[in-house]
Amino acid sequence: MDFQTARKVMVDSQVRVNDVTDRALQAALLAVPREALCAPDRAFSAYAEVEVPVTATRSLMLPRDLSKLLMAAAPKPGERALVMSGAYAAAVLAQMGLDVTLQESDAEALAISAPTLSAAGVTVVEAPLDRPQSDGWDLIVSEVAVPVRPDAWLDALKVGGRAVLVERNGPVGKASLHMRTPEGWSRRQLFDATPPVLDELRPEPAFSL
């Protein structure tokens, strides 16, 4: 399969047509080998308009959704970015010149992505995703949906930092841009999206008598 041609078709038919006009982002999407970051037996579908499986609990976010999230985040070269699950997003941001750390709790997913992330200069942390391992981030991104607002993630942003993620507690989620201000956070809804929800972030059921 000609992955380079498939990559260009993906950008032309799924990214540019959805008002993703950032040239640096488009160039990064054209450069990152998405096929190397999914389950090896699903590489043939890496550039289709589907959420491509990586492991039983992880998948690649739709190119349209991820590209719209990243454009809303306005990443800048030299910024410190934390990706909470999502090797593809990490590789794209690294290609754009950011200092990127990927935090992931799925060891199998990390094993698949390790060669590509190493070549891209991404720092990898294997750890639970309920809270970042450090703070002071300019940007936080997630390719998986969160069932509730992840306050621990937002607390890890520096003032002026941004987080882009999908909040989903029903059939359809809302992609949102959160910004850290001296007074707290601001939030702006972006578009509808339906990536899988990160189960380890679901609140424990509350029982009452």
Rank of each mutant, 00 (worst) to 15 (best):
Q133E: 15
P147E: 13
G121Y: 02
V122F: 00
G161F: 05
P150F: 15
R162Q: 11
Q103L: 08
S134Q: 15
L129Y: 00
T116Q: 00
E104P: 04
R168K: 15
V146Y: 09
L93T: 10
L139I: 12
Q103C: 03
V144D: 13
G170V: 10
E126F: 07
P147I: 12
A107L: 11
V146Q: 09
A109F: 06
E126H: 06
G121C: 01
S118R: 02
A91E: 00
V83L: 04
R162Y: 02
R180Y: 12
K174E: 07
L139A: 07
S105C: 05
A119Y: 00
L177I: 13
W137S: 14
E183C: 15
W137H: 12
L82I: 05
E143A: 13
Q95Y: 00
R162E: 06
A94W: 02
A81F: 08
A120P: 04
A145I: 13
A91T: 05
A120W: 01
E104W: 01
I112C: 07
A145V: 11
A127Y: 01
A87H: 02
P77L: 06
R187E: 01
R180S: 10
V159E: 08
W185I: 07
G184E: 06
V166Y: 13
D106Y: 12
S186F: 14
R149G: 04
S113N: 04
T123E: 10
V166P: 14
Q95A: 04
